[in-house]
Design a protein around this nucleic acid. Sequence first.
RNA 1: GUGGCGGUAGCUCAGUCGGUAGAGCCCCGGGUUGUGGUCCCGGUGGUCGGGGGUUCGAGUCCCCUCCGCCACCCCA
Length: 407
Amino acid sequence: MKFEAPRGTHDILPSEQPRWRRVTETMEEVCRLYAYRPIQTPAIEDTALIVRSSGEGSDVVQKETYTFEDRGGRSLTLRPEGTAPICRAYLEHGLHREPQPQKLYTIAPMWRYDRPQRGRYREHWQLSVEAIGTADPAVDAEVIRLYADILARLGVPDYVLQLNSIGDAACRPAYLERLQAWLDVHEGELDGEARAKRRTTPLRVFDVKSPRVRDLLRDAPVIGESLCAACRVHFDDLRRYLEAYGVAYELAPTLVRGLDYYTRTTFEFKDEAIGAQDSICGGGRYDGLVEAIGGPPTPGIGFGAGIERLLLSLGDGEASAEPVDVFFVLGEGADRAPVLTAMAALRARGLACDTDYAGRSPKGQLTQAGRLRARSVVVVDAGGARLRRDGREEPISLDRLADTLAR
RNA sequence: GUGGCGGUAGCUCAGUCGGUAGAGCCCCGGGUUGUGGUCCCGGUGGUCGGGGGUUCGAGUCCCCUCCGCCACCCCA
């Protein structure tokens, strides 16, 4: 094979489009019901925006970005996630001076230079939903319920929602100090992985594999017990609102997210049936992000939901393509020209039609009409035209076809 | 980025001990049929992922490489 799609990218063929559309149309409909408005941003962003928002030390920035210099010497990066670009657009176009919150969504491709495997691509599509300009925990509950609605409408049965709060600028630093102090005391009992993690991503020490170290960490201080009063109230309110919304969740005291900008709420929807890459939606609150990229202090919350992974959750259920309304079979000695005229008239009336361009035999053309699930077939030969539908056949004039079928 | 498994027709796969490449499905044609289904017959289709090596001879053995899958890592 001479050329193939670049590693980790994939084509979405016509045969897959019905399933894709069902998913994206459901997403758009649910976003509309929650009064989120569509927005689109460029695929490329200033590298500095991505670095400052995701964080210099994040895995995304450290090893997963597609970064290049353009011909003008600018450093650009293919967006690895949806939140930072939308916040940039929010700021750049003064949406922070319009009524708050701004409730926005986009369905767009993202790029990450990961090692590909099932459910993990270098180019993949995400639904990004963002509510910027309010710290109200009811909005946290809203975006979570919004995604749960999408799953419900699509019929995804087996997923769990994990929920946590990782505090904010007021309480997280103090917590991290307590955690590090505790780790200092137990330094001798840690393994290499735990020691590495406490240096780079201390909140992740709880994820180490060693059962012995995990056991030990059971006595370590957890963020949930160290929240400041404001974060505590926010989290309690969120949980109350989720109950009001009828959303079931489990607390995940060690759920941390990979980007530096998260504060307070973090959550993840998982479907472990789809493999190791089982997170189908991840998000959280990012109250410091807009300010970090040069705007006024502005709270926000949102999530990214991977479309390819959601399709894995949905399984292989077949969805059939749109049928065609009329297929024209050309018999011996038939003139094409009047058929083209008839098709133009039908299309003008909103009827989808097609004919043979492959030189098939009449039998082959009928087979093709069947494949396209044509509702009507018009057989044209030297003797005139016949309309076949509902198992019956009648002579018809091509001139009157549109009038007959459009009724 | 690390480790493991894999790659043969458009798709799913077989291919023995190293001896000149196969099936089913799909597609095209013919027959049957009530001119779209069924059934029967025939046909098109291959850089055996790519490159190098060993050998009289490589789909088969060795090396490199690309791609996929599984796990790690991390996430959507």
